[in-house]
């Protein structure tokens, strides 16, 4: 099949779907990347945080307040609190160890199991889904293909988060502390930065982003206890390709993987789900710092 005969198969809907998948990946990956960039911690439990965000949102919207946006904010903040608590109670103990990186990875992996089972205990092992908020819950037909308008909202919010984060890191005092600490922790501490508090703050922020990703994605996917394990691997691919610690890299990487997930089924061929992993291996070998720069870039 020649390329020209394939191109008409790609509808606008496929592109929108790909970008919306990329947006949810960005929200989880950017938090993962931020935490790694500043704390040097690769948080295996970040997928669990994403899942938890979706569950809390579903629980709030059905039991407490019938407003998706309020529920999403509550979900994101709740996950932030859980994340901060984990950093404060467990991960913090490991910063001074010789092989702290691996111990942190193992501890956060422990939390993968704990979060997964806790979610299963509280919400059962079935799956939940909800409709998008009413205002945006309508179909858009463009160029003969149909998609839900809420997808555009998710894409818009992801871009908004990217811009807000960039402004926050580059233009605010707290942002300058974050940048300073990420490049030289000892120096920052000597200059009077309260490094432990800053770390907890960054972990909180990263967790909030993961929770927000889960909350916003809840109307676009089914939420089940398996969700965290699925999404963390995609997030790892994204941050490796974009560069661990890079926010713009996370965005580009996420959109790349999102488009691949959307268009993959169109060009189904043996080995297609292997491509992201192959890309991950190649980037790690050739440019382990990722295709894009460091924090704040």
């Amino acid at each position: 099949m020649s390329l020209t005969s394939l191109v008409p198969l790609i509808g606008i809907a496929d592109v929108v779907i790909g970008l919306s998948l990329g947006s949810r990946l960005f929200l989880i990956a950017v938090g993962l990347s931020l935490i790694f960039g500043v704390l040097g911690v690769l948080n295996f439990a970040h997928g669990g945080f994403y899942m938890l965000g979706a569950y809390v949102t579903l629980a709030v919207v059905s039991n407490v307040v019938d407003n998706f946006w309020v529920a999403a904010v509550v979900g994101a903040l709740a996950v932030g609190v859980v994340g901060a608590a984990i950093e404060f109670s467990a991960i913090r103990r490991l910063y001074d160890r010789v092989d702290s990186d691996l111990d942190q990875l193992i501890v956060t992996f422990g939390f993968v199991l704990v979060i997964h089972e806790t979610v299963r205990f509280v919400w059962g092992s079935g799956s939940y889904s909800i409709d998008p908020p009413d205002v945006f819950n309508f179909s858009v037909t463009l160029g003969g293909s149909t998609f839900n308008a809420y997808r555009l909202v998710v894409i818009g919010l992801a871009v908004g988060v990217l811009v807000a984060l960039w402004l926050f890191i580059t233009r605010t005092y707290f942002g300058s502390l974050v940048r300073g600490t990420s490049s030289d922790r000892e120096m920052a501490a000597m200059l009077g930065v309260d490094v432990p508090r800053l770390y907890t703050g960054v972990f909180f922020l990263g967790s909030v982003l993961a929770g927000l990703g889960g909350a916003l994605s809840a109307p676009l996917q089914s939420t089940s206890p398996a969700l965290g394990d699925q999404v963390i691997i995609d997030a790892f691919i994204v941050v490796v390709i974009g560069g661990l610690g890079s926010m713009s890299g996370a965005f580009v990487g996420a959109m790349l993987i999102g488009m691949m997930q959307s268009l993959g089924p169109q060009f189904i061929s043996a080995g297609s789900i292997a491509i992201p992993f192959l890309a991950m291996v190649i980037v790690l070998l050739i440019r382990p710092e990722g295709l894009f720069g460091g924090i704040g870039e």
Partner: peptide, 20 residues
């Protein structure tokens, strides 16, 4: 024909492909 993995949480790309 589309064969997504078991326990897929988002079928949209596969649905879109069939609709195409």
């Amino acid at each position: 024909e589309q064969f997504p993995a078991l326990a897929t949480s988002d079928y949209t790309p596969f649905i879109s492909s069939i609709l195409d």
